[in-house]
Design a protein around this nucleic acid. Structure first.
Length: 718
DNA sequence: GTGCCTCGAGTTCT
DNA sequence: CTCGAGGCAC
């Protein structure tokens, strides 16, 4: 491998061709070691970097893409450890409630939505909420084909090999089973099995905090034999895609899972009234300690599936179900100090430093204190907290993990307050840059006014710029950003987003080489440059999001990108737009266009206009463009990164979800070539019902054949 | 004007 | 995950 990796932009065509040839051989060799010998000699991260480098060079020199290019075997490569699986139906989470009143509200809102009067019966199921990991098991013609974790709800991880080692999960289903069925449920570990595992693994150096974490860790093993040795169990309680309805009700659907051989929870019951639901909750709560597995609440679901369908979904959860959670575990500890963190917008957030304490199996040392008012004990959003008691350094405090994740301070114990304690005074100056910190009328946060003068804000801005939903540059974590930010040598310094993209260029002419500095080797430097180069061409919405304009996060960036198509168009409109003057006019046409974008109102639009009004913002954007960053229209960006880019696709048979023209346009938009007939050059055949000779030819040539639904899944629109 | 619902920006720990 | 706040339908 070449040690002196040049930035991709600096490669000549001949050098690029040479490197592509080398990379093809190198990656093929790693693939062979990984798959055939199960003995890789590079880490996954190093392997990924090679593939990224290959992709970056190919993006710049598409005419050099080799017949044996590694990018043509994307489907088989390990991405991270487990491959991605796009769920045929998203795996949503459940809304949470904590009190009887909220359960009443939930039932009321279901009735209201269905226009169901109070005297008409409405049946719910109630079952314990298992504290484990949700899992989607896809069976086709009765055979287990894929097991996937929830992931972000849309895309999960493929853990099929590990799931196959779990005895409780059937490999094949017998009896009356739909052609396609995705059985969903919870993987968990029993408490007694967990304790035995802890005993068995004592001295192995591995730690097991609780059954849930152990189940998660056991599932993410690279070697399925390790998973096999772990006592994992399963309960089925839901489903994703099904080729035919399972039953008329939730309850009966789960009974079918039982018939097929899945374990189902025996504590699930039907409730015919609100009172019965709450009674069932109390009953399960009372049994909690004696159950062999951990649970964290009770789940209620509307029983009739036709009603579930009418109720439908909100963005992240169904309207027909909710989880009634048990109160979170609490602990007391001492507040040692209150520190102030400064975010990228200047927001000053107080953080509690605590005497270490175990809450819910995890040691907590930090907790957010939200804002000034929270410390002073002023209730916000109508939630009276602590009866007006303030929080002071030295106080003994009650800590819980909200949603069992984020630690928060609920209250203090007044009797234990030291006699000499004084109220906490929230600073009116930034602890980092000493600028004034002001609180806007009606806002809860106090902000540092230092802007980019403030190192904390400048660094946080870069951190946001490279973060996963923005430019997504790997290898620039908090530590690295701080390092580059504080470099005295100009050839090593990163103080603005544009500096990231000029780093390699500045380094080339410098004697202070990054690779000679402790912590950076030649390999990691090469990987960093490759990661940066790979993002010079970036989707417009990511670029927009990365700029950090107020109110412009991921969703609003996508909305604006979809409307304007190019960054130039948005910028031109924003620079010309004039908001209404407040005396009856409605703003000029450019303003009208901005607020006409769905989901963008006056306040968000004004934030965009204000951003481009600022000279230093325009300069920062120009610097980025000058440094070679190119925001791409959505469709062009999709074509570069799509899984079918550069492939030759043939559609055959009758298509049901789209016309042939539509299919062709879609494939081309995603960077694929569409051919009329199958030949050795064909990479993929999409076959509908009635496919004939082309299908046979494809099978003869060993070309991959998928159906229309799989095509949609493949291109991420499943 | 009110009351959803969604979004952005903040947060922890493994 | 939680909070505050913006957008929009009523």
């Amino acid at each position: 491998m070449s040690d002196s990796a040049k930035p991709v932009d600096a490669l000549t065509e001949a050098e690029a061709a040479d490197e592509l040839a080398l990379l093809a051989v190198e990656i093929a060799e790693h693939d062979r070691r990984y798959y055939a010998e199960d003995a890789p000699i590079v880490s996954d991260a190093e392997y990924d970097a090679l593939r990224q480098r290959n992709a970056a060079i190919e993006a710049r020199f598409p005419e050099l893409i080799r017949e044996n290019s590694p990018s043509k075997s994307v489907g088989t490569a390990p991405t991270g450890t487990f491959g991605p699986v796009v769920h045929a139906r998203p795996m949503l989470s459940l809304d949470n409630v904590f009190s009887d009143e909220e359960v009443t509200d939930f039932v009321g809102s279901v009735r209201r939505f269905l226009s169901l009067p109070a005297d008409r019966e409405l049946v719910f199921t109630a079952e314990p909420k298992i504290d484990g990991l949700s899992m989607s098991l896809r069976y086709e013609k009765g055979r287990l084909v894929t097991a996937a974790t929830r992931g972000d709800g849309t895309t999960g991880e493929n853990v099929t090999a590990n799931i196959r080692t779990i005895k409780e999960i059937p490999q094949t289903l017998s009896g009356n089973v739909p052609d396609v069925v995705e059985v969903r449920g919870e993987i968990y570990m029993r408490r007694d099995d967990f304790l035995e595992l802890v005993k068995r693994m004592a001295g192995s150096g591995q730690t097991f905090a609780n059954p849930r974490n152990s189940a998660a860790g056991s599932l993410r093993q690279k070697n399925p034999e390790v998973t096999r040795s772990r006592p994992l169990k399963f309960f089925a309680y839901a489903w994703g895609e099904v080729s035919e309805p399972l039953a008329a009700t939730q309850y009966d659907s789960v009974q079918r899972f039982k018939d097929w051989g899945f374990p189902v929870n025996e504590l699930m019951v039907r409730c015919h009234s609100l009172d019965e639901m709450i009674a069932q909750y109390r009953k399960i709560e009372a049994q909690r300690a004696t159950l062999p597995y951990d649970i964290d609440g009770v789940v209620y679901k509307v029983d009739r599936l036709d009603l579930q369908e009418r109720l439908g979904f909100r963005s992240r959860s169904p309207r027909w179900a909710t989880a009634h959670k048990f109160p979170a575990e609490k602990a007391t500890t001492v507040l040692k100090a209150i520190d102030i963190q400064v975010g990228r917008t200047g927001a000053m957030t107080p953080v509690a430093r605590l005497e270490p304490v175990t809450v819910g199996g995890v040691v907590v040392v930090n907790a957010t204190l939200h804002n000034e008012d929270y410390i002073r004990g002023i209730g916000n959003s109508g939630q009276p907290i602590r009866d007006g008691r303030d929080i002071r350094v030295g106080d003994t405090v009650i800590v819980q993990r909200a949603g069992d994740v984020i630690p928060q301070i609920l209250d203090i114990i007044p009797e234990k307050r030291p006699a000499d304690s004084t109220p906490y005074v929230f600073p009116d100056r930034c602890p980092v840059c000493d600028s004034h910190a002001v609180r806007e009328e009606g806002e809860a946060v106090r902000r540092c006014t230092g802007g980019l003068i403030c190192p904390a804000q400048a660094m946080e801005r870069i951190r946001h710029f490279v973060s996963r939903n923005a430019l997504d540059i790997e290898g620039l974590g908090e530590k690295q950003i701080e390092f580059f930010f504080n470099q005295p040598d100009p050839s090593l310094r990163i103080r603005s987003p544009a500096d990231i993209f000029t780093l390699a260029e500045r380094q080339r002419n410098s004697l202070t080489k990054l690779e000679n500095i402790d912590g950076f080797g030649a390999v990691s430097v090469r990987k960093l440059y490759a990661a940066i180069d790979a993002r010079r061409r970036v989707a417009f919405w990511r670029f927009l999001h990365a700029l950090g304009i107020r109110h412009i996060g991921e969703t609003n960036s996508k909305r604006l990108a979809r409307h304007f198509h190019s960054f130039d168009a948005l910028r031109r409109t924003a620079e010309l737009a004039e908001p209404p003057d407040g005396r009856g006019d409605a703003g000029n046409p450019e303003w009208q266009e901005l607020v006409g974008v769905g989901g963008i109102g006056a306040i968000v639009a004004e934030a965009v206009v204000d951003f481009f009004d600022e000279e230093h913002n325009r300069q920062a954007v120009d610097d980025l463009l000058a440094a070679g960053v190119t925001p791409l229209d959505e469709e062009v960006a999709a074509a570069i990164s799509s899984p079918v880019a550069g492939k030759t696709v043939v559609f055959t048979g009758s298509l049901e979800r789209m016309s042939r023209d539509e299919a062709k346009a879609m494939a081309e938009r995603l960077g694929a070539k569409v051919a009329g007939s199958v030949s050795r050059k064909t990479d993929l055949v999409v076959a509908g019902p009635g496919a004939g000779s082309k299908l046979k030819q494809a099978t003869d040539l060993g070309i991959e054949v998928i159906d229309e639904d799989q095509w949609f899944v493949r291109v991420g629109q499943g």
